[in-house]
Nucleic acid binder design. Structure first.
Lengths: 354, 354
DNA sequence: TGAGATTCTGTGAACGTGCACAGACTAACC
DNA sequence: GGTTAGTCTGTGCACGTTCACAGAATCTCA
């Protein structure tokens, strides 16, 4: 049996070279010999095709476990003209990848769905503009069969390459002005729902720290807030900050408090923003939730660490990643998605901050 | 120019089948024809080997950009008997992956180093025991050339498979009782450094809550503390607790305070421990940093969320990931590491708790 | 000048798989 | 009994690359 022959043929007298001696993997040929059939039949069994006798199938299955056969991915990919890999691209400044637990969870969800389908995930963080070109080259090079894209910009080279190559792709979050599959949550409806609950606690002067109004998620959350308040809406009670970050929350709260010290409710566009706001409220000597009721958005790790814990909107981030990955996989199989966008359900989590 | 031809060659008369018409990738053969040389010579140029005339090299390099050639990974991997992929395995309960920013950053660092070397990263989270078996099978299947392992258990199937297969691997953190490459930080030196800074603020009676003395990290941090104090060291000012946890911090601080109510400085063995200690100090009516200066260790998520924010030791998590990946890469190239363990530099982050 | 080393190039084989094709055998039907 | 359809199996080729080998050309030195 050739697969039990010694690994290295050349005998170096006296010592062994330090190159690790890896055992040769069993191939479809070894299985065929062991089972007394041909390669073709083994291949049919492995790929679950029809037209194989029960007798042959049994023999081959036994042979597979006996020789410990695992199909060689490289060979299969070569002949199938595919890579069996999907890129997970995060277009965010590096640090935010770490700070924002949602991204990690999206990655986790996508990863789970992909590895269930025996796909590899190549995770890529696009930080600088230089990276942008590198990733575009990577995609053009055909290293992946599809792309899951988080926080895409509308007109960057990456998005253009994806469109040009007609690469199966799904975007987490709605990329404005781009016809492509996407997965997201109903930001408008969710923001309206959490604001309505805040109103229901009896608050009269409710402010909002809106964030990231250059993205549709930011705009939509503001829209939901506006909807919930209806004709009681007062634009002066809205403070806009650039990012979904803790420090932006601190700044936003200060500005808002300066204008409206009598505020008794706050909707922060994200939990990180809310955490910053809480800090500022505390410094200003205001108690939460006694003086001011605060709600956030995301149900991120922040939510349970603040004092008091935040009432917020739960984003099923892992579900988003999962859905995006499944969409890409479907497109790889050649299926045309019935709808471009998939909405994932959110829920309101009520804790102690309001 | 063939690389400016439209993507779909077939004119759509009436209808097109929905299978996307992907342009055929250029191969080494196309480049050879274009440059008027043979495949072998092209291969030599691509792989930067010697024995190629300047004339041929120029012609081939021009041909490569003209036809837009990118080597086919699957074909290369097949003939080279490798996968060009490294597994990133996190053995933690799923939620912690998301919660602990250090892990995300380690992943980021490893990913950067790997993709610089044109390696794919297959990230895997091991959660349940079922996963453990699945991953072991995955590794045995030869899908990766190496492994970066975060928070390994000593005696789980995964570790055993790695040892058995002699798979190139690097562990982040020191796996007790395992002879394998690992990457970590200098716990002794870092603990000494942060303690010295605490001394420099003028504290006279500095205590320590030592934790996890069953691990070398716990022992080393205590050693660093001892070193920094020199002959002023007083063993009675050290309280030992079993775990690096919040509640252990609460307990430890109570015990310490009972013995030494006049304490004016504290080194907690981790940020979580420090957070618990802060809570206890607050209950005891002691102000931080006015009455007691507190420093922690890890610069974890705790550090910025306590009141006041912690002065602590920053673990360069991205650097750890990077170093681990580089170690795996070196082992794949056949290099024997000079030392088993690599120490990565830490730094002290000074915030408001001391 | 001729032997040997050095540089350069092309060719065929191999890696391990899936697929098309041809052929063998069985069952069914007029 | 001959045709036809359906089932099952084996063989050769292709995928795109690297590597070993052989051979051609040039250079070096006695």
């Amino acid at each position: 049996m050739s697969n039990t022959t010694p690994l290295r043929t050349a005998g170096t007298v006296g010592h062994m070279p330090e190159i690790p001696a890896r055992r040769k993997r069993a191939t479809v040929h070894d299985v065929a010999v062991e089972a007394g059939v041909s390669r073709g039949t083994v291949s049919r069994v492995v790929n679950g095709e029809r037209y194989v006798s029960d007798e042959a199938r049994k023999a081959i299955e036994a042979a597979i476990v006996k020789v410990g056969y695992v199909p060689n991915t490289a060979a299969r990919n070569l002949v199938m003209q595919r890579t069996q890999a999907v890129a997970f691209i995060v277009h965010e400044p590096g640090p935010l990848f770490v700070e924002d637990p949602n991204i990690g969870e999206i990655l986790l969800g996508a990863n789970a769905a992909l590895s269930d389908a025996d796909y590899q995930m190549a995770s890529i963080v696009v930080d600088s503009e230089r990276d942008t070109e590198r990733v575009a080259r990577f995609l053009r090079g055909g290293f992946v069969d599809g792309v899951v894209m988080v926080s895409a910009r509308t007109n960057d080279p990456i998005t253009r390459v994806i469109e040009q190559l007609e690469l199966p792709a799904a975007f987490v979050g709605h990329p404005p002005g781009l016809t492509a599959a996407w997965v997201g949550i109903d930001n408008v409806g969710s923001a309206r729902a959490v604001t309505e609950q805040l109103i229901a606690t009896g608050r009269r002067r409710i402010g909002m720290i809106a964030a990231a109004l250059d993205r549709d998620s930011g705009v939509d959350r503001l829209q939901g807030f506006t909807d919930a308040l209806g004709d009681r809406f007062d634009a002066d009670l809205v403070e806009s900050v650039p990012l979904y970050s803790y420090s932006a929350g601190v700044d936003g709260m200060r500005a808002l408090l300066a204008r409206h010290p009598d505020l008794d409710g706050l909707f922060a566009a994200s939990d990180a923003v809310a955490a910053g706001a809480l800090e500022t409220l505390r410094e200003a000597g205001l108690r939460v939730p006694e003086d001011v009721g605060v709600v956030g958005f995301d149900d991120s790790a922040w939510a349970t660490r603040t004092h008091p814990p935040l009432s917020t909107v739960r984003q099923p981030a892992a579900g988003l990643g999962r859905a995006a990955a499944l969409s890409v996989l479907a497109q790889i199989r050649g299926e045309k998605p019935a709808v471009d966008g998939i909405m994932v359900e959110t829920s309101v989590v009520w804790r102690e901050s309001a």
